[in-house]
Every structure is written in structure tokens, then in C-alpha cells.
Design a protein around this nucleic acid. Structure first.
Length: 713
DNA sequence: TCAATCCGTATC
DNA sequence: ATACGGATTGAC
């Protein structure tokens, strides 16, 4: 039966194949005769092509990022491409009358398609770049985020570089395989058990809170070594280039430079493809990289690790906006690999992994934490005079902070000063307790509407559902007055520099170049979050200035985000037994500040997750942000609701148009769709299908869909 | 009556 | 997207 399809189709569809060309005989023939010497050997003989005798059908994912074309299409494999047309190779096929790129997903005996099948026109290269495991992962990720396979696969497979592909491949690296010394992980409960699981090749899942001062890259390298012991590969994803360098150094020291590759976005196309190909060909099985490395085709992957999963660079800015942790979770699940989510802090998402018992918490005992942590002091907000006058605050560095800095410098240690980056949006909070002001209907954040003046700022309005708040009442303390947040200032840091005139002040980030590392000598280092330089032995003190301003963004993750940044800076400070001190300018009564003082990221994450469950925000629920012109948003939301009326809709509300110079700014809106977590897949499917319907009927205005968006400010 | 044009639909 | 078919409109 199947061979009959192949044989009959092979002969019979020859004319059909040339149909499009015949459709415009005069033009086509004329141009061809006038232009090049003649058609290629392949197309000249296409009428005589015969189909491969075994598995003559190729299922192809075409490179068309349109939701209604987001499925494989079947083609016939001609005999002369039979050998090359293996799963994973890039192909060219005729699609909607044009030659397009695609990936061959699989070969089958039969096709479901009842119409005529076109030929696989050519195999671009015999390199099977798209590993089956990665193809499946791309599909899963696309489905999770209501996106299309073509978009995800572009993140997973770098552009081909023919010259690099033709190079003589490097020899498979010989890696010394020995189980790691468990001492480093011995400081943590379940740490050694996790290593043992890796050595045993088991798919353990863990959420790890690194101790202050921890050489986290060393621990990750040990975990990788454990995976290699079980003859499995390892992949580590970190937020930025600096962390890639740190992690790469740790891995290369252990396995040899030739056994490790670093995959980052800023490599040139050739080097990028060269390294990536070394991984795909199995020459290298230890990979470190930034977010798109989450898809790296590591052979027999055994360990998937992500550092600092709350960092926003782990969120891909291109559709469908996947997040590294989510990609690795899906991958660990499908590949039977271990997962390690590590950081000084803990996200609400990681907390959910722990609470659902899918992942084990790797944490140190309280006593161990206390011994490793610096002494943390919170000052400020009880001093109401300071709270009322931001300028006075910026001009006056509190005495405790001065004293901590003085002691550190006197002991010969550098002082870290963390200042928020500029560009914080105005937001509203309770004037008495500083809790973010929330909408009484949907618990969204209150802000001032755009376009208001200083004298007439307009009514406080929910940024989610758009309802105006006439009579605010704080859910926490019952206060009725609101205050607006202000932008953080670096003046305080300059003030510090003036206060210690004989001490050098260096800057990292926030306009200044980011410093990787500073000398262990008495100087002041002013850094923006994420740009704190490392220092041997640790800082003697850290001053976290304008902590209250960090809590001032109209973003639901501000608290988690602030704690993450504070912990990251504080982790660079010496233990309190060595005099290490952290001073944060924020009210010690605020729970998130308390979490820093007590060094309790897990406790905070539990509170945070419970809070998100209360207000109905991810990860406690699944949410989708739908953005576009008012008509397009309404259209998409209607389609989704028609399929599933039980989906809760918040808004739409007007949002800032994206900055596109030269473009006429058009009105844009955002609606939020909310469902229980168990309905997350269905929500994504309905959104995908609605998008498919719209793009299929050529709806003019595109709609941007983001699942569990990081910010809905 | 024929052709230019507009929709709607399928794309292996 | 783009290409095609069938319906629709318009001018002779």
C-alpha cells in the first residue's frame, strides 16, 4: 500500500509538480530563457523523480511563523535525497508556491494528507542540526507560551555557517571523569544526596539557596562533574556574560578548556555555529551560556542548571517570550534529566516547585546561614522626617551607614554601595505603611494615569483592570492616604565619597563600565544591581541605598526583585564574624526587609507565593497579557472567550505605546486573561487557536500575547 | 459577455 | 505571507 503510494505518486505527480510553473507559461519561460543558462539539473529532471522506497514521506516544519501554519507538512523524498533526508536536517520545500526553509522532523511510510504531495526540493545540508529531543522541546515551549514552533526553533538552532560546517571537526574531548569532592555541597541539607543522585544518573530536581559568599560556580561545576560521572552531559544557563565567564572558568579548570563551550549571543555567527556544532556533534558535553543556551543540543543531557532564575535576562524578549527556568523544567521532564535551580534568593516560581514536591530544597541550616552571613541592619523609615523628604534623605547618609563604611575601610576592606538604576516609574503606595497600593477589585497595582499634571494628577487607577480608585483604603494598615514613589538617586553615594575624601570611589554599571572584579583594598565601589564586582575575601561592608525606592516600581515582583538584588550584593560581604556588615536604608518593619535582615529567602518566597495566590497572580495562577490596538485586543479576547467562557478577563486598559521613532504612536491596550494553573495549557491553546483564526483570515493588527508576563506595570 | 476585483481559504 | 478559485462588480 505505502509503496504503491510512493510509486504511483512519484510518476503521477510529475506534471502536478510543474503545475505552478505552467500556470504562468509565457512569463516563466521567457524569463528563464532570457536569464540564466537554464534550469538546474534537479528541476530539469524533476518530472522523472521517484520516491524513496522506504519511508518516502518527510514531515517538515516549514519556517513560517504563522499560527495557522504551525504544524508539520508532508513531502515526498526523492531517491537521490533519500540518504541525506534524515530527521533534523534543514530542507528547502515548495510551500504556497514558494521555496521556503524548513526542518525535516521525521520520515514515515504514509501521509494523512489526501491531496498531492510535493517533493522535498533539496536538503540544505546533511547535518542533522535539530536533535529530536530539541524538536520536541521547541514544540512543548511553543505550546506552553501560545507561540509557534518556527519562532522557538529559531532560538534553538543558530543560523547555518557553511564554511564552519565544512571544517574538520575537533576531536571528541577526553574528559577526566571523577566524582566531585562532596565537601562543598556538604554544608547544605540534601546537597550531597543531590550529587549522589547525579552520579547515579537519576533525574533529581532541586532548588538551591546558596550561602552568602558561596563560590556557586564551583558548586555548579561539581554538579556537572557528577553528571559526567554517570556518562551524561551538563548544561548551565546564567544571566549574563560576566557569569558565563565565571562559570566557564570553573568548568574549564575542572574538565579542561577543550571539554567545555560557552554559548553567548555576542559571538560572531561563525564562532557561534562552530561551538554549537561541537555540542550537536557530541564533541563537547559540558555547556555554559546565556538564555538561548537552554536549548543547546547536549548529548545525553543529565543535568540542567540555572543560576539566579529571577534575573530578567532569563526572559527571552522575542516571541513567544519563554523563560529559561520554564524551558529547563520542560526539558528535564521530557529528557529525564536532573534540574538545579540555584541562587542566593528564591523566586516564587522556585518556591512552587518546592511546595509541589517536584523539587527538593537544598538549603543550609539556620546556624550555618547565620555564621556565613554579614550582620544586616535596616534603618530609615521610622525616621519620618527622612521619609517625607527624599532630598534630605539623599543628602544625608545615615550615621550607621557611615560607621559601617568607616570600619570596613579601616580594616582594609572595600565597601560596596548599591544604588538603584535610574528610570523608576512613579507608583502609589500607602502613605503610612508603604505597602504598594492595590486595587480593591483585582488586587492590581494602583498608579497615576498618564497625562496628568502636577496640579491635577488624576484619580489613582488600577494598572490591570483600569478601574479608578476614589476612596483608597490600605489593605494592610487601613491607611487612607497615598504617596507617590520617587526615583532613586546616586547623590548619596557621592556624598559618601566626599565623606571619605582620601578614599577612591569607583563606579560599576549605571553608565559606567561594569567591573568584573576589584582589588581587596580600602575603596568605595558604587554599583547598580547586577553590576557588583567580585572581590577576594569579600567586602567589609555593603550599603544598600534607596532600598525603599527599589520597592517603588509598579510591578508585582518588586519585592522579590528587591530582595534578590539585596541578597546578591550582601552575599559579597564578609561574614559578620569577620566584621562584615550590611546597612539597608529601608524600614525594618517591611517584611521583605526583614527577610534580608534574617537572611531568609525561602521564608520570603513562601510568603510571596502565598501572597500571589491571594491576589491571583502567577505563578499561583496562569495569566496571559494580550496587547495591541483596542479592536485587535477585543477581537482576540472575544475569540478566546467564545472557546472558553470561564476565562477571567481583566481590563483592557490603555498602555504606553512602544517607542518606535518615526511611527505615529497609536493607541494600545492590554487585557489580562487569568485561569487556574490547571487550565494553563488550555489557555495557551485557546490563545494560539484564536491567533491562528485571526492570522488565517488576515486580520490586520497583530496582537502580542505573553504568558505569565514578568511585568504588567 | 468578459474581465478586473474582492473575499475567503489553503498552503503538503 | 501568497496564490488561487469563486463570487461580485462594472463596462461594453
Amino acid at each position: 500500500m505505502s509503496s504503491a503510494v510512493g510509486a504511483v505518486g512519484g510518476v503521477g505527480s510529475g506534471p502536478a509538480e510543474t503545475g505552478p510553473t505552467l500556470g504562468a507559461p509565457a512569463r516563466g519561460a521567457g524569463r528563464r530563457a532570457a536569464g540564466r543558462r537554464g534550469p538546474s539539473a534537479a528541476s530539469r529532471t524533476r518530472g522523472e523523480w521517484t520516491a524513496a522506497s522506504v519511508a518516502p514521506i518527510a514531515r517538515v516544519a516549514v519556517d513560517m511563523p504563522l499560527p495557522h501554519l504551525d504544524r508539520p507538512f508532508d513531502y515526498r523524498v526523492p531517491t537521490h535525497l533519500d540518504e541525506q533526508a534524515q530527521p533534523g536536517v534543514r530542507v528547502r520545500v515548495r510551500f504556497a508556491g514558494r521555496l521556503v526553509d524548513g526542518f525535516l522532523l521525521e520520515r514515515t511510510e504514509e501521509s494523512e494528507h489526501t491531496g498531492r504531495l510535493a517533493w522535498v526540493d533539496k536538503v540544505v545540508s546533511a547535518e542533522p542540526v535539530l536533535a529530536p529531543e530539541v524538536a520536541a522541546l521547541c514544540r512543548t515551549v511553543a505550546d506552553r507560551y501560545a507561540g509557534v514552533f518556527a519562532d522557538v526553533v529559531r532560538m534553538a538552532v543558530p543560523p547555518r555557517h557553511a564554511r564552519v560546517e565544512a571544517e574538520v571537526p575537533a576531536d571528541r574531548a577526553v574528559v577526566p571523569v571523577e566524582p566531585p569532592d562532596p565537601a562543598g555541597w556538604g554544608r547544605y541539607q540534601r546537597g550531597v544526596a543531590f550529587l549522589d543522585a547525579l552520579v547515579g544518573g537519576r533525574a533529581a530536581h532541586a532548588v538551591w539557596q546558596a550561602l552568602p559568599g558561596e563560590a556557586w560556580a564551583e558548586r555548579f561545576a561539581e554538579a556537572a562533574a557528577a553528571a559526567l560521572t554517570a556518562d551524561r552531559g551538563a548544561l548551565v544557563v546564567v544571566p549574563d556574560q560576566r557569569d558565563v565567564d565565571t562559570m566557564h572558568a570553573a568548568l574549564a579548570a575542572r574538565f579542561g578548556a577543550g571539554a567545555v563551550v560557552a554559548l553567548t549571543a555576542d559571538l560572531g555567527p561563525a564562532e557561534r555555529y562552530r561551538r554549537w556544532l561541537a555540542v550537536r556533534r557530541g564533541a563537547v558535553r559540558v555547556v555554559v551560556g546565556t538564555r538561548s543556551a537552554a536549548f543547546a543540543p547536549v548529548e545525553r543531557i543529565g543535568l540542567l542548571a540555572v543560576w539566579d532564575d529571577g534575573d530578567d535576562s532569563h526572559s527571552e524578549p522575542r516571541a513567544p517570550y519563554p523563560q529559561v527556568r520554564d524551558v529547563l523544567i520542560a526539558r528535564a521532564h521530557a529528557a529525564g534529566a536532573a534540574l538545579l535551580v540555584g541562587g542566593f534568593s528564591r523566586t516564587a516560581e522556585a518556591q512552587l516547585l518546592v511546595e509541589s514536591t517536584w523539587a527538593a530544597a537544598i538549603v543550609a541550616d539556620r546556624a550555618v546561614v547565620r555564621a556565613a552571613a554579614p550582620r544586616v541592619t535596616a534603618i530609615g523609615e521610622t525616621d519620618t522626617q527622612l521619609a517625607r523628604d527624599p532630598d534630605a534623605r539623599a543628602a544625608r547618609v545615615p550615621g550607621v551607614a557611615f560607621e559601617a563604611a568607616r570600619q570596613s575601610l579601616a580594616a582594609g576592606h572595600p565597601v560596596l554601595v548599591q544604588v538603584p538604576r535610574a528610570g523608576y516609574l512613579p507608583w502609589l503606595s500607602c502613605a503610612s505603611c508603604r505597602e504598594s497600593a492595590r486595587c480593591r477589585h483585582c488586587a492590581g497595582p494602583l498608579g497615576l494615569p498618564r497625562g496628568g499634571s502636577e496640579h491635577d494628577p488624576g484619580l489613582p487607577t488600577c494598572r490591570w483592570c483600569g478601574r479608578a480608585e476614589v476612596t483608597f483604603r490600605c489593605g494592610g494598615c487601613g491607611g487612607r492616604r497615598l504617596r507617590a514613589g520617587v526615583v532613586g538617586s546616586r547623590r548619596t553615594a557621592e556624598e559618601l565619597g566626599r565623606a571619605f575624601p582620601q578614599v577612591a570611589v569607583r563606579s560599576s554599571g549605571g553608565g559606567a563600565p561594569v567591573l568584573d572584579r576589584v582589588k581587596a583594598k580600602p575603596e568605595i565601589v558604587v554599583a547598580t544591581p547586577g553590576a557588583e564586582p567580585a572581590v577576594d575575601g569579600g567586602y567589609g561592608a555593603a550599603l544598600l541605598l534607596d532600598g525603599w525606592a527599589m520597592l517603588s516600581r509598579a510591578d508585582l515582583r518588586v519585592q522579590e526583585e528587591a530582595l534578590r538584588k539585596w541578597l546578591a550584593a550582601s552575599a559579597l560581604v564578609r561574614p559578620h564574624a569577620e566584621g562584615g556588615r550590611v546597612v539597608i536604608v529601608a524600614d525594618s518593619g517591611i517584611p521583605v526587609v526583614q527577610a534580608l535582615v534574617r537572611w531568609d529567602p525561602a521564608g520570603f518566597a513562601a510568603e510571596e507565593l502565598a501572597g500571589r495566590a491571594e491576589v491571583g497572580f502567577p505563578p499561583a495562577v496562569r495569566m496571559a497579557a494580550v496587547e495591541g490596538t483596542p479592536g485587535a485586543v477585543a477581537d482576540l479576547v472575544d475569540l478566546v472567550l467564545a472557546a472558553e467562557p470561564r476565562i477571567e478577563v481583566l481590563g483592557p486598559v490603555e498602555i504606553d505605546p512602544p517607542d518606535e521613532p518615526g511611527e505615529v504612536p497609536e493607541v494600545r491596550e492590554r487585557a489580562l486573561l487569568r485561569v487556574p494553573r490547571s487550565e494553563g495549557r488550555a489557555l495557551a491553546r485557546h490563545l494560539h487557536d484564536a491567533q491562528a483564526l485571526r492570522s488565517g483570515r488576515r486580520a490586520p493588527d497583530p496582537v502580542r500575547v505573553r504568558l505569565d508576563p514578568a511585568e504588567v506595570g
